[in-house]
Design a binder for these strands. Structure first.
Lengths: 303, 303
DNA sequence: TCCGGCCATACCTGGCAGGTATCGGCAGCG
DNA sequence: CGCTGCCGATACCTGCCAGGTATGGCCGGA
């Protein structure tokens, strides 16, 4: 049985007349007769009663037609769904991101994306760069936004695009001696208890800090690893020490904290958007397009 | 797009390999490639990614396949439903019947029918012979069981089959003088207030009673028309007079009534099953078959 | 009884589904 | 770094069947 048979049967039921139904589907009457007969043979039941007053579906025909309508509707929907999916207008996007991406990048990107692609089911979860990279490789995420390209086994199957760059700033509680200062020097920071991203979860950021401060130096007065920028700011507000994080923290500065530059300037690892290389999903492409559109800093992969 | 394309796409998704998928659907590999390419062109989207490790559906392909599965399932169900409907195993049977049919005929027929054809939605309603005939002609019923063939305009489009025959019996309240008698004569009945089927709703029955008693005689002492046999028995139990009805009333005799034969015997119009002549529904045919099977009195139409 | 409408049948044809042969690309391997 | 084997795409052919035209058969109305 082919879709053709369903279309013909529906046309016949609608027009109750072989000649007109045939014209409606664009064929001559005899082929229609033959196709209907063939369909009836295949189904094993007479589907239409040919009477002098017209052609009418039998009970079996009514049962058949009801299903046939649904089958054809599904076929049309299949084509439509596939086309929309190909244009990235439907589907699912699972996004993992580090907390600092919520400060400047993601608000505009996600707003715009969900406006332009309302049929895409967007699942976004905050997570560290390391965990995001693992989730991406495990197929648990479609896109992940982190600090620095994800490392680890199979990292070459990940495509990364730089989407933002931040200088390092220091954040302290309102009562801290640095509060009110425009800048602190790296030398001063060596004397402080520092609050930074954790070495395991944010390896690129931590490595950059070690490099900036001289190997190991940033930790000799004590060191606290934090899960994300909000935790860094919160612990700094508690007076626990000096927090180190991206300049985009200024966008979410708490009133009970003070943020100052670090001299000489330290550039943090780029904020990077990562995809699986073997996943050319149109939804993902659409997401990247929106990101490129909104973010002038988007550049080539860092490797 | 044809059903063939859906089957091929599903096979390809299952085997992730053009050659094996082609073998699975019984064709060679090149035609499968061509058909898939044609499908992708028609849908306007690439549905499969051909990689070195195998063939995998794209996001658009996944969307398409989900619908395709449902479409094919609907097509199979269409054929199955139609075949079962043709065998009378599914569909709907709207049945109208006179109350007396519930005494002997319908209990066995409906039990057997609903057991043998569990997929048929059975809608049964008690109604007079006249109303059942009208409802049948109006297309509100598929089958009706009444006393005598339905009359009226267009009655020739109705096919009738006799399914039962009853003698006339008299029913009286326990306190009535006839209680305990084996029989009453037609002559005795002439002196009684009678409770019978109404002239408008049961024309055949009423005409037979008039014929048996002599024109008009049965009504000269007063007469009550009743909607059905249970009403006749109920009114008789109230001592309102002598009820006249089919012998099958004995099957549902109330303890507060007495039933006696009428002499000389009067044969009531046959219990008749009626169908629309232009409705050759298999459900209806199955219903008639069950009736014939269970009821030895089934005979030809009475006209 | 003739006529007109309608569906079925008979027969033909062209397009396309599906066949075989072969190419091109890629991955693994010596 | 070429060789080889595998796989999908392409090229080309063929046979079948969908669909065409012509016509027959049946039925209902005039």
């Amino acid at each position: 049985m082919e879709a053709r048979h369903l279309r013909y049967a529906l046309a016949l039921a609608e027009h109750q007349h072989f000649g007109r139904a045939a014209k409606a589907v664009g064929i001559a009457q005899p082929p229609l007769s033959k196709q209907i007969a063939q369909l009836e043979g295949e189904v094993g039941a007479r589907l239409f009663d040919r009477t002098a007053r017209g052609v009418f579906p039998t009970a079996a025909g009514e049962a058949f037609l009801a299903r046939a309508r649904r089958a054809l509707a599904e076929m049309e929907a299949a084509a439509g769904d596939a086309e929309r999916a190909a244009r990235g207008e439907t589907g699912r996007l699972r996004l993992g991101f580090v907390g600092s991406a919520l400060l400047e990048l993601l608000p505009s990107v996600l707003n715009r994306f969900s406006r332009d692609h309302p049929h895409v089911r967007l699942q976004a979860a905050e997570m560290s760069t390391a965990r995001g990279g693992r989730a991406l490789l495990d197929g648990e995420l479609d896109v992940c936004v982190g600090r620095g390209a994800p490392r680890g086994p199979g990292a070459r199957e990940i495509v990364t695009v730089a989407v933002g760059r931040d200088r390092l700033v220091a954040v302290v509680g309102a009562a801290h001696p640095y509060a009110g200062q425009a800048a602190v020097s790296v030398g001063q920071l060596r004397e402080q208890h520092l609050i930074t991203a954790s070495a395991e979860e944010e390896p690129a950021t931590f490595a950059r800090l070690r490099q900036a401060g001289g190997d190991g130096v940033f930790t000799h007065r004590g060191w606290t690893g934090a899960r994300d920028v909000h935790t860094i700011m919160g612990l700094a507000a508690c007076g626990l020490g000096v927090g180190l994080g991206p300049a985009s923290m200024r966008a979410a500065r708490r009133p009970d904290t003070w943020i100052c530059d670090v001299t000489p300037g330290v550039v943090l690892p780029d904020l990077v958007m990562s995809f699986r290389a073997d996943d050319a999903s149109p939804v993902q492409a659409a997401f990247l397009a929106v990101t490129r559109d909104l973010c002038p800093h988007v550049g080539a992969a860092l490797g």
